[in-house]
Deep mutational scan, measured.
Amino acid sequence: ADDEVAKLLVDAYRKNDEDKLEEVKKRYNISDEQVKRLIRKVL
């Protein structure tokens, strides 16, 4: 599931889509710190 979330985050990140990032964060209840970590893992 982590990889799936990471893909969604990276996708939103690449598109610079703040709304999507927020949506994913809320849906999976993850912190900014986790977001950064997941994005770093993929990029």
Rank of each mutant, 00 (worst) to 15 (best):
K7L: 10
K26E: 07
E33Q: 07
K15T: 13
N16K: 11
K36A: 12
N29Y: 04
V5L: 13
Q34R: 05
D3E: 11
A12R: 00
K41H: 12
D3H: 09
K36F: 04
R27V: 06
E23Q: 10
Y28F: 12
K26M: 08
R27A: 10
R40M: 13
V5I: 14
S31D: 10
V10H: 08
E23P: 00
Y13I: 14
V35A: 14
I39M: 06
E33D: 11
E22R: 12
E33Y: 04
A12N: 01
R40D: 15
K36S: 08
E33F: 04
D3G: 09
K20W: 07
I30H: 00
E18P: 14
A12V: 02
N16H: 13
V35T: 07
L21P: 00
K15P: 01
D19L: 13
V35D: 01
V35L: 12
E23C: 06
D11L: 03
Y28S: 01
R37V: 10
I30M: 13
E4T: 10
L9S: 00
L21F: 08
N29R: 06
K20V: 10
S31M: 03
D11Q: 05
E22H: 08
V24R: 01
A1R: 11
Y13D: 02
L9G: 00
V24Q: 01
S31R: 02
K26N: 09
V24L: 15
E22I: 09
Y13H: 06
Y28T: 00
K41M: 14
V10S: 06
L8H: 05
R37P: 01
N29D: 07
L43H: 05
L38R: 02
V24W: 04
R40Y: 11
E18L: 15
K41S: 12
D3R: 09
L43R: 05
K26S: 08
L8I: 10
R40A: 14
A12W: 05
K25N: 00
R37K: 12
Q34M: 13
E33N: 06
E4F: 14
E18Y: 15
I39K: 01
K41L: 12
I39V: 08
N29P: 00
N16L: 06
K25E: 00
V10N: 04
L21R: 02
K26Q: 10
E18V: 15
V10R: 06
E4C: 11
E22Q: 11
Y13M: 11
K7Y: 08
N29I: 02
L9N: 00
L9A: 02
K41N: 12
D19W: 09
R27T: 09
I30W: 08
K41G: 11
D32Y: 05
R27P: 00
E33K: 06
R40H: 14
V5K: 03
K36D: 14
V42P: 02
L9T: 00
V24H: 04
A12D: 01
R14I: 15
K7I: 10
D19I: 13
L8T: 05
E22A: 11
K26A: 10
R27I: 09
E33P: 03
R40F: 10
R40V: 12
S31Y: 01
I39E: 02
D19H: 12
K36Y: 04
Q34A: 11
N29K: 08
V42A: 14
L43I: 11
D3Q: 08
D2T: 12
N16D: 07
V24P: 00
Y13G: 01
E22S: 09
D3P: 09
A1T: 13
E23G: 04
Q34F: 11
R14G: 07
E22C: 08
R40Q: 14
V24Y: 13
K36N: 11
K41R: 10
D32A: 07
